[in-house]
Design a protein around this nucleic acid. Sequence first.
DNA 1: GAATGTGAAAAGCTTCACAGCC
DNA 2: GGCTGTGAAGCTTTTCACATTC
Lengths: 221, 221
Amino acid sequence: MKVPRISQATVSRLPVYVDCLMKFAGEGVAIVSSKQLSQAAGVSAAQLRKDLSYLGDFGIPGTGYVVNNLLRQMARYIGLTRQWRVAIVGYGDLGSALSRYRGFLDRNFSIVAAFDVDPAKLGRRNGDVEVHSIANLETVIKEKEVELALITTPAHAAQQVADRLVAAGVRAILSFAPVPLVLPDDVVLREVDLATEIRILSFYETLRSSQTPSTPLSLSC
Amino acid sequence: MKVPRISQATVSRLPVYVDCLMKFAGEGVAIVSSKQLSQAAGVSAAQLRKDLSYLGDFGIPGTGYVVNNLLRQMARYIGLTRQWRVAIVGYGDLGSALSRYRGFLDRNFSIVAAFDVDPAKLGRRNGDVEVHSIANLETVIKEKEVELALITTPAHAAQQVADRLVAAGVRAILSFAPVPLVLPDDVVLREVDLATEIRILSFYETLRSSQTPSTPLSLSC
DNA sequence: GAATGTGAAAAGCTTCACAGCC
DNA sequence: GGCTGTGAAGCTTTTCACATTC
């Protein structure tokens, strides 16, 4: 095997493979073929094999992949062997929903702090995470040893918050603010823009209903 | 201009351009260059010009784009000239947060119905959307003339819910369930997997901290 | 002079198809 | 016989660079 170069596209599929493997493991399946696993993950078998080949030669030709072995190898690469300390900045509806999101909590991500500008939200209520004043962002980030941050502030505050998080030492950020952020290259940034996602749907629907010969618009797929 | 073929990648950027244009319009800017607009949108100037060229020749060489003109043209294509009727299936933390999300409400998307299996959640409380029993999904979808649906159920229920939505006539779905869905080709499906997103961050962080000569893993970017 | 629109080149990603291994 | 791992081909997307237009 030559030195692997893992593409962005591959990285974004690895967590899905892990979920599928855990499901198989939970069902007592010991070995899966690339076909079985790829179907569960919603990709082609060739895609799956190529993706996995970047991590190493974990399959057995003629047989398939040993579920527990592959799971162990992947969990190592993807960082699932330890707990991650997460902060949420912006404790509105979305931020507070995410602080209780099982998809995070069940996968070794602990929400260790939240921040908001609204004094009425400060403190801790019935088992929720403690909400700090955003004025104390730097201090609390360091105290709680936060490694990852979610930004769920309004658009206008997002860039400033991101800058402060980076200055405080956070190296990976998941932003839900509907505005493009600019950060240093060595900070990992993912942006989930829900307002954009829903408009992509409406775009395709508009396209569908305007499918007439006179309309000068078509799609490449 | 030849017959345009708009790529997926281009479509996913158009809503961002619209947001940026509205911001410029709000600031009283009458004309923008591809450089200005592309910087606001976080893409290259060449990228922006190529994207816009698929929709038509809206720019003025030597000058730039007339903000209001471009905005009008884009709003037409993207379906922002009318209100969209949206349903949310799964009224847990995430579903109820999304039903109040301003990023939707401010952009002509109305949440007209919500569904849950939990009888304790049924009804309507202080200005919230009405929550219906999922048993009545088909009836309410048709009554309320729902066009788009958000799926915020647990993973195990998502595929069944999606199938019922499609059978009831919904043609575009945004799913937050952390599981790949399979739907007919003529249904527009977007999947936002938050559990995957956060693990992509942890992957890159794990990679960063394992950057030693002995580790056989590197990235293509 | 200045900025757009666009072919052509480059880069990135997916699919194919088959040699090699179990 | 069956399935993996992977070069090569094919497709999509981005970047380049410049002729064209104002």
